[in-house]
Amino acid sequence: METFLMYIKVFIIGGLLCVLAEILIIKTKLTSARILVIFLIVGVILEAIGVFKYLKEFAGAGFTVPIIGFGSSLAKGAIEAVNKEGFLGMFSGGIFKTAAGLGAVTVFSYLSALIFSPKSK
């Protein structure tokens, strides 16, 4: 039952965030790259002020799958690394925490590019 409730929350929160992005696309004519950067920085700020972990507890993947989650991981990594390693941490932390994701994106995209070709519509 608890899992089911969680799934509903994930669906609704994730959906609402995407609706927000869609509203930005329609109303402001911002390009998609700009919108991604805006949401990313929102994620960084939410993590920096310590709100994100409560949001994550509340709706799990509803917050971590959108690009906000990527931003929060970056900030979280930097904070953890600064606390552990000090000065160097602020350079390495963000990348270290998101390295698995970036690595996966690079490898899978590369493989996909080697296998597939673009199709004209």
Binding site: I67, A75, A78, I79, V82, F87, G94
Partner: peptide, 27 residues
């Protein structure tokens, strides 16, 4: 490779650095 997603990575790393810097100074 990163022509389109580049802004996300660059701004992400930059903003994580800023957060790290703030926490470092607070620390």
């Amino acid at each position: 490779f990163y022509t389109i997603a580049g802004p996300v990575i660059v701004n992400g790393i930059l903003s994580s650095f800023i957060v790290g810097l703030i926490y470092y100074i607070i620390g």
